[in-house]
Lab assay of single mutants.
Amino acid sequence: DRIFMTRTEALEFLLKAHQTAVDKIGHPSHKQTPADHAAIEALDRLLLDVRARRVDQFQINASAAQIIVTD
């Protein structure tokens, strides 16, 4: 599946995904793992790359739809 978004929409989408990941590892019942921190770092890099126009398409994980940034 493909989803087309403007750059602004894609950045909002990534910010929400980032916040969800941060909230998940901050929850008291969740045991933090290196994979959790790696996922947040990957989202940080992706946010910067989309914002800087170095990336025009991405996929958060293998089961997610491919996001295509349109400007």
Rank of each mutant, 00 (worst) to 15 (best):
L47N: 01
H37S: 09
I25T: 06
P34C: 05
A35M: 09
I60M: 08
I67W: 01
A64L: 09
S29G: 13
D23V: 08
H18G: 02
D23G: 10
A17L: 14
A52E: 14
D1T: 03
Q32K: 13
L11G: 01
A42M: 15
H27I: 08
I67G: 01
R7F: 09
L47H: 03
M5C: 03
V55T: 07
E12T: 07
K24S: 08
E41K: 13
R51M: 14
I67F: 05
I60S: 03
P34F: 08
H37N: 10
I60R: 01
A65D: 05
L48R: 14
K16R: 13
R54W: 04
D36H: 05
R7L: 13
D44I: 15
Q19N: 07
P34T: 08
T20G: 08
A21T: 06
R51E: 11
T70Q: 10
H30L: 06
M5T: 00
R54M: 06
L46P: 00
Q57E: 10
A10N: 00
R51A: 15
A17H: 07
S29N: 13
K31D: 11
L15A: 12
R51D: 05
I25W: 06
A39K: 07
Q66M: 15
I60G: 01
A62Y: 08
Q32F: 13
L11V: 10
F4L: 08
Q57W: 12
A39T: 11
A52S: 11
D44P: 01
I68V: 11
R53D: 06
Q32A: 14
V55N: 02
P28F: 02
V55D: 01
E41D: 10
V69G: 01
A52D: 12
Q19S: 07
A52N: 13
A52H: 14
L15Y: 13
A62T: 11
A64N: 09
R45T: 06
I67C: 02
K16T: 07
S29V: 07
R54T: 07
E12W: 11
L43M: 05
I68G: 01
A64M: 13
I68E: 03
T20R: 13
F13A: 04
K24F: 09
R54F: 05
I40W: 03
D49V: 03
K16I: 09
I68A: 03
T20Y: 12
E41T: 09
I40M: 08
I40C: 03
L48I: 13
T6N: 06
R7H: 07
A38H: 07
V22F: 07
V50M: 03
A35Q: 12
H37Y: 14
F58A: 00
S63C: 09
R53G: 15
F4M: 06
L47G: 01
H18M: 15
Q66A: 10
D49G: 12
I40K: 04
H27D: 15
A42K: 13
I67E: 00
A10W: 01
V50T: 01
V55S: 02
A39S: 09
A64T: 13
H18R: 15
D49F: 04
L14A: 00
T33E: 10
R51W: 08
I25E: 04
S63Q: 13
E9W: 02
L15D: 04
I3C: 05
S63Y: 13
D71E: 09
L47Y: 09
M5R: 01
I40N: 01
V69N: 01
A65V: 15
R45I: 07
Q66I: 15
A42D: 07
I60E: 02
L47A: 04
Q57G: 06
T33R: 06
A38E: 11
Q57P: 01
M5N: 00
Q59L: 06
H37V: 14
A65R: 06
D1G: 03
D56V: 13
H18P: 00
N61Q: 09
T6F: 02
R45V: 05
T6S: 10
F13S: 02
I3N: 02
S63L: 13
L48D: 14
P28D: 12
E9R: 05
H18I: 15
R54V: 11
H27K: 12
L43Q: 02
R51S: 13
D71L: 06
A10F: 01
A38S: 08
L14H: 00
T70V: 14
E12H: 10
L43V: 03
A39V: 13
L43H: 00
Q19C: 05
K31I: 13
H27C: 06
Q19R: 12
A62L: 10
D1K: 03
H37M: 14
E41F: 05
D56Y: 15
R45Y: 03
H27P: 07
Q59K: 11
D1W: 03
V69S: 01
Q32L: 14
T70H: 09
R51G: 09
A10L: 02
Q19W: 05
I25D: 03
A39P: 03
R53L: 09
R7M: 08
I60P: 02
D44E: 15
K16V: 07
A64R: 07
T8G: 10
M5H: 01
L48Y: 06
D36Y: 06
N61P: 11
A42E: 11
H37D: 09
T33S: 13
A62K: 10
A65I: 13
E41V: 12
E12A: 14
D71G: 07
H18E: 01
V55E: 02
V50Q: 00
D36G: 04
Q66D: 04
K16A: 11
L46Y: 02
A21P: 01
R7C: 03
L47S: 03
G26Q: 15
R45P: 00
L47P: 00
D49I: 03
A17T: 06
D56N: 15
F13C: 04
A21M: 15
H37A: 12
A65M: 11
V22H: 06
L11T: 03
R2E: 04
A38M: 10
I60N: 01
F4G: 02
L48Q: 15
A38W: 11
D44H: 15
D56Q: 12
S63N: 13
K16Y: 08
L15S: 10
Q19H: 06
L14P: 00
Q19M: 08
H37L: 15
I25M: 12
D23H: 08
E41S: 10
Q19V: 06
A42P: 01
A52Y: 14
A21L: 15
P34I: 08
V50A: 01
L48G: 11
A10I: 02
D36W: 06
T8E: 12
I40V: 11
L14V: 03
R51Y: 10
I40G: 02
P28K: 09
A17I: 10
Q32P: 15
H30F: 08
A62C: 06
P34R: 08
T20C: 06
K31M: 13
A17P: 00
M5G: 00
H18S: 04
V55M: 04
D36C: 04
L15R: 14
I60A: 03
S63E: 12
I60L: 12
K24P: 03
A64Y: 12
L47T: 04
V50K: 00
R7V: 07
H27T: 09
T70I: 15
F4V: 07
L15F: 10
T70M: 14
V22D: 02
D36K: 03
I25K: 04
K31G: 11
I25S: 06
L48F: 06
A65H: 08
D23S: 12
H37T: 14
I67P: 00
R2G: 04
K31T: 13
L15C: 06
R54Q: 05
L48C: 07
H18T: 05
R51N: 05
P34E: 11
D49H: 05
Q66W: 15
V50D: 00
D71W: 03
D23C: 08
I60H: 04
V22W: 06
A35H: 08
G26D: 09
